[in-house]
Amino acid sequence: MPLLTIRNLSVTFATAQGPFRAVDKVDVDVNPGEILAIVGESGSGKSVSMLAVMGLLPWTATVTADEMTFDGRDLRALSGPARRRIVGNQLAMIFQEPMSSLNPCFTVGFQIREALKKHTDMDKAARQARCVELFEMVGIPAPERRLKAFPHQLSGGMNQRVMIAMAIACKPRLLIADEPTTALDVTIQAQILDLLTALQQETGMGLILITHDMGVVAETAERVAVQYAGQKVEDQEVQALFDTPHHPYTAALLAALPERATERRLPTIPGVVPGQHDRPAGCLFSPRCRYADDVCRGTEPPVQPDALGRARCHYPLHAPQEAQA
């Protein structure tokens, strides 16, 4: 049984200029112990779809889905208190900015013990022992002393380790990491990614890694979902995705990797992700796609079968003629 199943998730924000659809009919499946990467540019709705799963969106957001099941429970039907018993417990999340994601008024130890107090029936001594154990797991030296530190007394990398310790404190079945390394130095990035994959292997939890960095994807993920302008445009195993991308957007992202560049100038994707007011008719990627024709610009593309990476495209790349829908 999959750990997380989402069908046709849409998120619409009420804005002063009218409704804005940030996530558009997205499907997500994560199996227990699997690492899924969700990739896309800024504004592609990666974070928003996961915040919807966590129930952390502001009140201006309307979430609709045909199915949203975590560990056999329907997240849509849960009451507030019932959801809060799952969130932070079996379902945890870490964020992009470790420095601002921890409360400056409280010691990091307090903030971790708080989660343990909420979700476990450990006594005070047990909570303290668990905190020390967690800090050792995430590689923070001198745990007893560091637990008494305030977030501003620690570095960004240390704070992200604290965030990870906090997220895994109650042994979650699924951890969502929202660009966990974006705000960190390159050397620290690698350490944090290694830590996350090591913890994932150690605990057997599922891991969703939200990123815009294809290099991170290649190193860590097992399966990749590519999102563009709120839609999922492709979904493949990582090796297959890098070998035979089916959606032109995926292909363009891969071509923009410095490691793959063949010419002196790095290829780029012209234009930007469409916003609220310039959403094209037909395929959302068509204005930036080098293969687009009038069909693409006029008709919404179908979702191709599994064999073609469920690409949302009229003319998927690397398609054997007979497989094309």
Partner: peptide, 8 residues
């Protein structure tokens, strides 16, 4: 957001 993500 972090505090809410803890289920508080």
């Amino acid at each position: 957001r972090t505090a809410r993500a803890k289920g508080l």
